[in-house]
């Protein structure tokens, strides 16, 4: 009985202590150290919020670079992968048809050039990035749709490459597409 009362009291005390000494401290730290007071970083284009920095979006238009396939269709209020096993025949059929459709939209590519990340779904379904190689492969399609020289597009890609000190160099697809919209004047 004595233990029961201590248990209840101690649980409430832990709640209060953690709220004051942990949650509020982190919250204040986020408010002071991040530009956005700990909220997600929104990205604007033409003074309108068009996305969140770290959350990928679905792109299907020919004039944009495409993101990876998503198991949740880039729904930011859910998240998750396909959870398909690597030997699942249905899954392999899906991948195969994604390869075909990627080749239809990029007829100048050989099949051996199609990168696996563009035909497989990410873990979160919200992956905001593609590799630099995957961006270069889409250049000719985008250049054709926008009626500009491929070199111009390549320069824009090079300007948005994010290279961390350690880790993998990535392209944020949303930022790349916004950069194109603003530099090429649509």
């Amino acid at each position: 009985m004595k233990n029961l009362i201590i248990s209840i009291k101690i649980t409430i005390l832990f709640c209060i202590t953690l709220l004051l000494a942990y949650v509020l401290v982190l919250w204040l730290f986020a408010g002071l150290s991040t530009p956005n007071f700990g909220k997600v970083n929104t990205i604007k284009a033409n003074n309108k919020i068009v996305g969140v920095e770290n959350i990928g979006q679905n792109f299907s238009s020919e004039k944009y670079f495409w993101s990876r396939p998503s198991a949740v269709n880039y729904n930011g209020s859910g998240s998750g992968g396909s959870n398909k096993g690597v030997t699942n025949p249905n899954y392999l059929r899906d991948v195969s048809s994604r390869i075909d459709s990627f080749l239809i939209h990029h007829p100048y590519l050989k099949k051996s050039e199609v990168p696996s990340e563009m035909v497989t779904a990410s873990g979160s379904g919200l992956d905001p990035h593609i590799t630099i190689e995957s961006a270069y492969l889409q250049v000719i399609r985008v250049a054709k749709a926008r009626k500009v020289k491929p070199d111009e597009i390549k320069n824009i890609i090079d300007s948005v490459i994010e290279t961390p000190i350690i880790g993998i160099s990535v392209i944020n697809v949303l930022k790349l597409n916004i950069a194109m919209d603003s530099k090429l004047n649509k």
Binding site: V86, L92, S112
Partner: peptide, 20 residues
């Protein structure tokens, strides 16, 4: 199984994984 399809897997097995 994806290698058999003849595409490039320079990033590895990427189903369910993140680029970054």
């Amino acid at each position: 199984k994806i290698e058999e399809m003849g595409i490039s897997q320079h990033s590895g097995s990427m189903e369910g994984k993140e680029i970054r």
